[in-house]
Each structure stands twice: as C-alpha cells, then as structure tokens.
Design a protein around this nucleic acid. Sequence first.
DNA 1: GCCA
DNA 2: CAGTACG
DNA 3: TGGCCGTTACTG
Length: 644
Amino acid sequence: MTAAEYAQTLQLKPVVPATATVSGGDSQRKWRHLLLKDFTFFYVSGELTYASQSTKKRMDYIHCRGGIVLPAYDPELVTHIIVDTANPDKPDAGVTLRTLGLKKLSDIPDHVPTVKWKWVNSAKLVPNGDRAGNFRIVEDGNGGHVTVRMDWEFMHSAFVARVHAGKGFKNTGGNEKDKGKGKPKAKTTAQRKEGENSEEEDNDSAEDISDISCACRLIGSVVGVRLIFVCSRNFTQDAPSPPPSAKETTPAVNQTKSVQSEREIPFISDPLGEFEALAKEEKKAEGFLCDAPNSNSLTSECPNQDIVDKLEELMELHRAKPTEEDKWRVYSYSKSIRKIRTYPHRITSYEEARNIPGVGDKTALKIKEILETGELRRIDIEYTEDLDVVHLFQGIYGVGQHIAYMWYSAGCRTLDDIRERKNGIKVSDVQEIGLKYYDDINTRMPRAEAGEIFTAIKRTAVSIDPHLYVEIMGSYRRGKATCGDIDILITRPTDDGNSHEGVLASLLSALQREGIIRENLSMPDFKDDPLEAVYRGLCVRPLREGEGHDTKRLVHILTVPYKSRGAALIYYTGDDIFNRSLRLKANKMGYSLNQRGLFAGVVRSTENKMIKTCDGHIIASETEQEIFRILGVPWQEPWERVRS
DNA sequence: GCCA
DNA sequence: CAGTACG
DNA sequence: TGGCCGTTACTG
C-alpha cells in the first residue's frame, strides 16, 4: 500500500485520539487532545512503492490528533508539508519535489512551511493563559481547552531555502488570529490553580483526559444502552477442571505434584513474603511466560479479585476499540491481570504492585486508585456510547473492529439493523451465518458435549481410513470445563506408503450427510499441500432419541503432514498466550516456530521482516517434547499451558 | 499497556 | 491487499 | 523508541 493510499484509508477511519506525552513546565505528563486539529498535511516519505510501518504510524499519529493527511499534494488545501525522507535530519529536496510534482522549491506557496517530522513532536503543554511563543488553544477532550505551545515551523524547516515559509519567521505576530479560535473556559486564577493541582496529584487523571467524545461526534449519534462486558469473565472464570480422564491420550497426572516438581519450591518460613521477593527478582530479568508452568492452585480464591475485576472491565472496553494502541493495551492488560490474579496475597500499595513483573507505572496507579476508592474512573471515561454497539457487532463471527465501526458510523445500532442491511451496509456470507447463529456461537458448551461431537466425528473419520490419527485439541485438551469450540487435528503415519490426502474432503461430505455439519464458514485450500488444510464450520451434537438440542457449535478441523504433528499439537493445544510466548522465545533464540515446525537459520532482511527471507531449515517438528527441549522450556502438560 |  | 480468525 | 506470533490461513 502506498503512502497516498494509506492516507486515503485514514480519512475513512474514525478519529480516536491517542495519548501524547507533553511536557508542561517542569512536569511531564501524558494526556489526550486534538493537537493537530485545523492542520492539513502532506507527508513526503520518499517511499515510492509502499508506505513503511513508520510512515503509517506517523500518519496515524496525525490522524489521531485531529490532523488531516492529504493523499495527494494540493497547494489549495495543505497547511504543512512534512519532509521525512530516508535521513530525517537531511531531507532530500529532489525526492520532495518529485513527490510534490514540482520543479523547484519556490513553487511551494510561501505560506506553506516544509518541516521535518520533529516539528510535529514539539508540542508542549503550558499553563492556560500563557500566550508566549507559538501557542495554540486546543480542545482537551472534556469540553474544556488547554494551551499548547509548539516550536515555530522555521526552527524545523526542512530546507534552508524555505526557512521563511510559515509562521514565526520574521513575523512572530502571524498567529494573532489563532487567539480567537478556541475559547477557553473563563477561569479565575484560583480555579485554574485548583485544576492544575488536582492534575498533578494524580497523574492518571491527566492521562484520563480523553477525546473519545470527538470521535463519537464524528461517528454518529447517541445510543442509550449500557452493556455489561462479561465475555472475558465467562472465559476466565471457568471452574478449574479435572485433568483429562484416563481414556484421553494425555496421561492423567496429578497436576499440583507436577508443578511442584518443576518449580522446586524450597521450604521457607514466610512463603508469601518470599513470593513477593521472588516477584521483585523476576522484575529485573523477566523470562518468557511459557517457561513457568501454570499453577492453578490459587485461582479459586484470589485476594485481589476486586482489582482483577476492574482491570478486566477496562481491558474489555479497550478490546472493542479500533486502534493499534488499544490492541497492545489489551495485550498488556491480559498479561498483568494474570500476574495479579495469581499473586497470592492482598496487594496493599503502589510499590507492591509495581514489583509484580508485567505491572508498570500505569497499572500500579490504577491499582492504587482501586485500593483507595474502590473505583476506577478510567472505566467511565473509556465507556463511550459507541462501545456497546461495536461490542455487540464484534460478537458476529467475521466482524472485527473495523467492520463494527463502519457499521456504527453508517448508523446501525442493533443486530436487526444489520439483518436489514440498514443504510446499504454490506454483509458477507460468513457474517450472515454469524448473525443467524449469534447466540449459539457466543455460548460455550459443556466439556461433555464437545467430547460427544468429537467422538462422532472421529468415528466417521476412522471409518474412512482406520489408520488416521484423530485428536481433539484446544481448550478441551487443556482440560477446560467448558469449550468455545471443537478443535480436531487429523494426520496419518506414512510408513505404509499412504497418506491422508483427500480424507478431509470425504470426511466433510460424510459429516454433512450425517447432519452433523450444518454450515461452512471457511473451506480448506489444498493448493499448497494436499495434506495441509483448515476447515471451519458449524455442527451439532448427534441427535439422540427423545431429547437433544441442536445448538450450533463451532468446529475446526486441521490436517497436517505426519512430520509436522508435534508442532501442530503445540499450536492447536495453545493457549494463545502460551503459543505467542513460545514463538517469541524461539524468535529471540534465533529460531522460528509455527504450526509446521521449529526452524533455524531463518534470515529476515533487516527491518521490514516480511520482505526477503532465507527459508532456513527445519530442526524439529515431530514431537512436542523435542521442540520444548530445544527451546529450553520445561515440559508442560496441556492443562499446565494455560496463560490467559 | 509493559519492557528492553 | 486488508480484515478476520486460530491456538 | 520500537516491538509485542506466525513469511499462520482464509475470504472478498
């Protein structure tokens, strides 16, 4: 995607302001605002064929702060040209002119400055009323206004020949008219002082200033429903389930025993104090999440449940939001929440929270607030009226953040609006199915039902080829009491010269004849390798005489070459966080792990790691154990791999 | 969000 | 290609 | 300040 195309897509995206670090006098703080509102940029990256990650990020940065990024240079619209070519400190005039489609720099209008990226970053928060320098008054997201000072454009001029362009050079009065633009709330000095104090007392409140309201104005009108986000809790609060019974392929081992033997917990007089010290120690040199087996022993009684609840609620709010920033926030919260949940005693201070690995300054402050007030104001701030709707839409299989926000901005508010294609929205085939079985898909099934469906499918599979290896994976293999779907792995030994080629297709038609499979969500693509495929669909439990519901259940079937079964077992067993951690560790060790195997010597071209790779060679894939061993990860049974 |  | 889904 | 899993797989 070129920079122009990316700029174009940006214009369609809602403005959801991101945080910015702003130095205010002698203190630094993070807050949110539409700093760049009223500015229209043309961004010269020098990248001809595609927009780099950095370019996209910077365009996002501008967009999130209310600025407009033009897809094409237009001297009528542009207020600033940002020149950010290969070497940011030495802008390339030739590249710039080619990008602009001009012959010489003097063809750029005099009122349009050509600045380096650094200028955009020069904003500083100043006390309201401070009218020195190049100040601007911008919305603070809470209906108020704040004063911000930016460097003069000429200070970051990209080209000496154009230092004169824009505000500040020679004529420092050029921003006179800006004064009337924002109308700050009339405040007495005392009131203002009060406001500043409260801001300083609690860092978080400053950070909490959110411009979501602006986004909402942009997106559409108000909805009155407040929906409780409980999804994650449904997932995480499953009753601790017993290890798989003896009939399972995985041996039934006493899990607490195995955990203890791995961790070699020494005898200590004050186990809780010791844990705290341990946490502190880990903070210095954090290992990988996959290295320590999960200990389920503490999940029943969490001394910090109130904290966990509040943080989870906040995490779910962020999960529904569309930006990359929110995505990583969720990632971060999920890790810190897990640490807090398994922390064995009541957290009593900011310091104590901070010492838990994965808990940083922000989360520790939030914990402090919960400890002191029992509340987390950030939850109310993030809880904008668009969220419950997009959350509802995201419950539709095949609908993620982007589609949800598109539909919301098109004016849709209910599932019926979607069904009716209100305002001409498009609904894909998969989404149509997701809509039809909305409740079914979002309801977890008892472990026993997953087992029942698996048994039926395995029976059919083995009737096609008795040598097939058919296993149930996912949350079932991890021993969960309820399952969100049924994950089935199929492969076959090749020592007799045969393989499972063609089996999946036969199996699917057989299951359809039996009435077990009811809907297809995605069909396998055998083009690369006939032994490797993924199927997704909806199925029902085989109907028994008399009783039997026909709630549709998600079923995933994966076939892999026999050689890859170890890597596939790891992947398909999960959980997701465990897998990501394992893959991260592999990566850091110079390996690469995916569902096909563990590879060494994978060379990625510096930066842009998608481009140009040397294939590398496979070093393990047949058994889970050897992959664990090479990665230096202690062996863990499936139910010990729970990380989320 | 957290961390190196 | 972007978006979504998967553990 | 940049990375955060996978040259994942599938759809449109």
